[in-house]
Simulated assay, not measured.
Amino acid sequence: MTRLRIRDAAPADRDLIADWMIAMAWETEHKRLDPDTVRAGVEAGLADAAKARYFVAMREVEVAGRETIAVAAGTLMFTHEWSDWRNGDWWWIQSVYVAPEHRRQGVYQAMHGHVAALAQATPGVIGLRLYVERANTAAQSTYRALAMDDAGYAIFESEFGKS
């Protein structure tokens, strides 16, 4: 049986997480991200819990039929959003990535469960939210299976510095 462990990300995880974010942006949106900007952004998030909190899923894999080693299998970040309507914080799940060789094996479910348990144990947290690309039906199915519902919102943005 494969074991998963979810741990807080460390500064040494910066390059791996940044590489995964670049891969995720390409896979899900066909967007090419600037590697230096992403690395700086991940580094800033890792350094300041007020900005973000990252986790890494570690999976034990067997090597040469006898030894097991822990390998990074995925990552998840969350940020906070204050809700005056509810007098509490939403935790926004973002920057989710599971390495292709570890997909459909419970990695996201384990990360989600870890964050959900932390959220429920943290006073003032009122729930979890995330956004997903409309065409990403596989992810939507996963989120629904974890008792998440479509909140009925569309997201609009105005990115500064873009022409």
Rank of each mutant, 00 (worst) to 15 (best):
D149I: 06
P35A: 03
F160G: 07
F78V: 02
A9S: 13
I17W: 04
V71S: 00
E43W: 01
E43F: 02
I126L: 10
W26D: 10
A23D: 13
A139I: 08
A139K: 00
R66W: 08
H80T: 10
G88K: 02
G65A: 04
V71H: 00
D15C: 06
R3I: 13
L4W: 11
F78W: 15
A110S: 14
A99K: 12
W92P: 00
H102N: 14
A151V: 02
Y143M: 04
E27A: 05
T28Y: 00
M111N: 11
Y143H: 04
D34Y: 02
E133A: 15
A135F: 01
R134P: 00
A50R: 13
A64I: 01
A121T: 13
H114W: 15
W91S: 01
G113R: 09
R5F: 07
E60H: 03
Y153K: 05
L76W: 05
A44I: 04
V115N: 09
R86T: 05
L46F: 06
M148F: 07
M58K: 04
N87G: 11
S163F: 04
G106A: 13
D15I: 05
H30P: 00
Y143P: 03
Y131L: 06
V56E: 03
L146S: 09
S163T: 05
T79G: 09
P11H: 03
R39N: 06
M24Q: 11
M1W: 07
A119R: 12
Q94C: 06
A119Q: 13
E157T: 08
T122F: 05
T122I: 11
D13W: 01
L146D: 03
H80E: 12
N136H: 09
L130Q: 09
A121F: 14
D8A: 15
E133L: 13
A119S: 13
T142M: 06
R144L: 06
W20N: 03
A72Y: 07
G65P: 00
R53H: 11
I17L: 14
T137C: 04
E133D: 14
V96F: 11
M24N: 07
V96T: 03
W92Y: 11
H112L: 14
W90Y: 14
A23P: 01
T37K: 09
G113I: 13
P100H: 11
S141H: 14
E157N: 07
A10R: 14
L33H: 02
V96L: 15
A154C: 04
D13N: 07
L76G: 00
A47V: 05
E60Q: 13
M148S: 06
